[in-house]
Every structure is written in structure tokens, then in C-alpha cells.
Design a protein around this nucleic acid. Structure first.
Length: 221
DNA sequence: ATTCTTACA
DNA sequence: TGTAAGGA
């Protein structure tokens, strides 16, 4: 499907259904990776073409160029965030496929058999042939960030398990509340509200902890 | 002559 | 975003 073909500006623009000027415009906005330069000529490949198609699709959906620019960064770090925005509303979590090597690289030295088993048990990880699938890019990113901060992966995983319990309880609460007072279809529509409530409350709760700790310091000194 | 960039509208 | 002008 995707050959190792390369295109010059005009050809790429034509295939993407835009003008050369627009192509340059996108590049200036950081929406497109720099092309391979061969002296005077700029060579683009299928990655660029795919990106342009993505941009076009997002524009169709009413996204602004600057909004897309923000997402472009995420696109460069993650894999296929493209359809995450419109094509996959059932869940906002995108699975990530990665090789065992890539996984090991993300959690330097922490990918022990024990941790692997724990992650599999939690359902964070699954396997698909030789590849490993993480259920959520966000969770993957966060956990590797925490490990990078010096927190042992084993503890990150057990914390994840506890968060899972609370999340289930919250989901039960909202589901019950919504379904008890309206059609079940509301579940999908009101989902963002549930998310907002939890996010806001967590924010406030963290604020309280910060405040309590500060007062504690002053009292002790 | 061709391919791309710069600058201006 | 189009286009004219100019560098390589």
C-alpha cells in the first residue's frame, strides 16, 4: 500500500489535492515534517502524504489549523492519532502497538517478568503475534513518565490497579445516576460531563492536599 | 530550463 | 492563499 516512493512538491501537492503554496504554508506552521533535501529539490514521501490527508480530514471536520498544529506534535510522537478525533468515539483511549524492544526502551530496566505479568493481569498489556499492545496511549505515556521520574514500575502498576477500582466505582455511580433518570442513550452523550466532574474534583482535591502540606510545614517549624 | 523560496498583495 | 520575481 505504502511504497517507498518519493514526490517533489508539485506532485505531492497534487496527490494531496492542495496547491504548492498551501503545502509550504503547512510546513511553515509546523504541520508537516521537513522534506528530505537533495540540493535544490525537496523530496516528500508517503508519510507527508498521509499527514496531508489527515490535515484535510481534520479541516473537513471543522478543526482549525492551529488546533491541528497542536495535534501535529502528538501525531509525531504517537502513531495513529488521526482517527482518534472523529472516527473512534466509543472510547477516547487509543491502543498502542509496540515491539518488546520498544516497550523495554520505554521503561529502562524495569520490564521484569513480574511487572510484565502485573501489566498483563491489569489488562494494560496484551499480545498480538510478536507485538505488544497497550490499551491506552495516555496510560502508557503517563506510566513511562512516572518511571522516568524515578518511581518504580511495580508501584506505578499497583497504583494503577487502585485507580482502576476507584474509576470503576465512579463509572458505576454515573451510569446508575444517568440511567435511572433517562434513556440509556444518554450514557454516551453525557459521558463528557462525567469526565469533567471527576477531573474538576480531582483538581480540587489535589489543591487541598497541597494546601494542607504547606500548613503542616509552617506548623511544624 | 527547472525547482523552490522570498516577498508582496 | 495567489503570484511575481529571483537564487541556484
Amino acid at each position: 500500500m505504502a511504497d517507498k516512493q518519493e514526490y517533489r512538491m508539485a506532485e505531492l501537492a497534487e496527490r494531496a489535492g492542495i496547491t504548492v503554496r498551501t503545502l509550504r504554508f503547512y510546513r511553515e506552521r509546523g504541520l508537516l515534517a521537513p522534506p528530505r533535501r537533495e540540493g535544490r529539490i525537496a523530496w516528500y514521501d508517503d508519510h507527508h502524504l498521509a499527514r496531508l490527508r489527515t490535515i484535510a480530514a481534520l479541516l473537513e471536520r471543522g478543526h482549525t489549523l492551529s488546533g491541528i498544529a497542536e495535534l501535529a506534535e502528538a501525531l509525531d510522537h504517537g502513531r495513529d492519532v488521526a482517527d482518534l478525533l472523529g472516527v473512534a468515539p466509543p472510547t477516547e483511549e487509543e491502543p498502542v502497538r509496540l515491539t518488546p524492544e520498544e516497550l523495554a526502551a520505554r521503561f529502562e530496566g524495569e520490564v521484569t517478568p513480574e511487572n510484565l505479568a502485573a501489566a498483563l493481569d491489569l489488562g494494560y498489556l496484551g499480545t498480538d503475534g510478536d507485538e505488544i499492545v497497550h490499551i491506552s496511549r495516555r496510560l502508557l505515556d503517563v506510566s513511562s513518565a512516572l518511571v522516568r521520574e524515578g518511581i518504580p514500575l511495580a508501584e506505578v502498576l499497583s497504583a494503577g490497579a487502585r485507580v482502576r477500582q476507584h474509576a470503576d466505582a465512579l463509572a458505576d455511580l454515573f451510569t446508575d445516576l444517568i440511567v435511572r433518570h433517562g434513556p440509556e442513550e444518554n450514557l454516551h452523550r453525557l459521558r463528557p460531563l462525567a469526565r469533567s466532574v471527576v477531573e474538576a474534583e480531582l483538581s480540587l482535591a489535589l489543591d487541598r492536599r497541597v494546601r494542607e502540606r504547606k500548613e503542616g510545614e509552617q506548623g511544624e517549624d
